[in-house]
């Protein structure tokens, strides 16, 4: 698509989408949000970009779609097995609190799981759309 307005908008909107998606991902455990929605947000940013710049743009973003899927699967697998290795049932949440002078952060396997979902959603959405766009030669 050859609209200059669209091109400029897409270029600057993509990082905004991605930053916002990370915000939604991180607040997910106790507030509305989470890996799936964040993944949808991030991938819609990337898709918006590639709709204006053609199907090649998908493969040029950060990682290949397939790598996103692998990353996501590994994240989910890790989050499931960390509890497992601590001789608790599969997928049991394990939490750890980091305290630095000013604030404290609680990090746990559910966050890892959510990130896994996040990458998996991005990966599969990009795979679906990029294969369709290549098929119909979207320019």
């Amino acid at each position: 698509m050859n609209s200059i307005i669209l091109k400029i908008t897409a270029k600057y909107l993509k990082p905004v989408f991605i930053v916002f998606s990370i915000y939604v991902l991180l607040r997910g455990h106790n507030s509305p949000g989470g890996g799936f929605i964040a993944g949808l947000l991030a991938s819609s940013g990337i898709l918006f970009y590639s709709l204006t710049y053609g199907s090649d743009a998908i493969n040029q973003t950060y990682l290949k779609p397939k790598s996103f899927i692998i990353l996501g699967l590994v994240g989910i697998l890790l989050s499931a097995t960390i509890g497992f290795l601590a001789s608790k049932p599969l997928l049991t949440g394990v939490w750890h609190t980091f305290k630095t002078g000013l604030f404290e952060v609680k990090v746990g396997t559910p966050l890892l799981f959510d990130s896994g979902v996040y990458f998996l959603v991005i990966g599969s959405l990009l795979t679906i759309t990029s294969s369709i766009m290549e098929e119909i030669e979207w320019k």
Partner: peptide
Amino acid sequence: ILTAIVIGFGIIAFTLVLTY
């Protein structure tokens, strides 16, 4: 429902490509 929607979404995408 969220789970069912996600599954449905994946399958519909698959079916559309298959039809194409």
